[in-house]
């Protein structure tokens, strides 16, 4: 925490330090299909966060003992590049990235129809290129779009964002300063019907504050969902006058 003698203010004329309203998201930029080798991929910027997600699969499971006879397994690897933060991050998995990987996987797994692909694996890799608070939510958003891009059957997309508390006020999508010096951070992930698949809380909130935070974060997720959906649809929009993709899968003679 910062020196107590100096009172830090997170608001100026009702606006946040980066000029946002309390219930405003940071600007988002999404690109689909950025990697040629991956089956599905997505690059996403949420404010100063830059993440890239790659999806491979369904494919054969290695090592073999991990495979499940009745369903596909989902593996999710969240990794921060050593240059993604101000002070060099020691490369490789650590306790934090194991946790983020686990909760992110559990945020996406409920919508994936794993029973369609027994004995296989869907691999999701999320690389954080630049971090500014909220990398796990950005990673989940990118991974969800990349999964759709890979043609993996899902019940819906997943959208994710966080709410936080600074200076006693609940704000949407906290950036680094607000996250580091704020009082609480609540990342969530949900499907467009509002069913939550990830809910974490760091810090302290009263019951009312948590409710307000959830409300804000849910509204944020809805906005993100619209962006995710639009980027996927726009990718093929140049062919709104659709051709006769065919009804018969003819098996022709040699």
């Amino acid at each position: 925490m910062i020196g107590m003698d100096e009172k830090l203010s997170f608001f100026k004329d009702g606006l946040r330090l980066d000029g946002r309203l309390p219930d405003e998201l940071r600007p988002i930029k999404v690109e689909v299909g950025v990697l040629a080798r991956a089956d599905g991929s997505c690059y996403m910027e949420m404010g100063e966060n830059k993440v890239i997600a790659a999806v491979y699969g369904p494919r054969e499971v290695h090592p073999r003992h991990l495979q499940e006879v009745t369903r596909a397994i989902v593996r999710y690897r969240y990794n921060m590049a050593s240059f993604s933060v101000e002070e060099r991050k020691r490369p490789g998995p650590d306790r934090r990235s194991y946790e983020v990987s686990k909760v992110s996987r559990e945020a996406l797994e409920p919508v994936i129809l794993t029973s369609y692909f027994p004995r296989s694996v869907v691999d999701v890799f999320v690389e954080v290129l630049q971090a500014d608070a909220g990398t796990r939510t950005a990673g989940i958003n990118a991974a969800s779009v990349a999964l759709a891009d890979a043609g993996i059957p899902m019940r819906s997309l997943i959208s994710s964002c966080a709410a936080g508390k600074v200076d006693g006020e609940i704000v949407l999508d906290p950036m680094k300063l607000e996250d580091n010096f704020g009082e609480a951070d609540v990342p969530i992930a949900m499907n467009p019907s509002g069913e939550i698949t990830l809910l974490q809380m760091d810090g302290r909130l009263s019951k009312e504050e948590l409710q307000r935070a959830l409300e804000l974060a849910k509204a944020g997720c809805q906005q993100i969902y619209e962006i995710q959906r639009k980027v996927l649809i726009d990718r093929y929009s140049h062919m709104d006058d659709m051709g006769s993709c065919d009804e018969v899968v003819a098996e022709e003679e040699i």
């Binding site: 919508v111 759709a148 059957p153 899902m154 019940r155 819906s156 997309l157 499907n191 467009p192 995710q228 959906r229 996927l232 649809i233 990718r235 093929y236 929009s237 709104d240 659709m242 993709c245």
Partner: peptide
């Protein structure tokens, strides 16, 4: 009615 959809639509 042919159009692009995403999962959940």
């Amino acid at each position: 009615d042919r159009n692009v959809v995403v999962p959940g639509d």
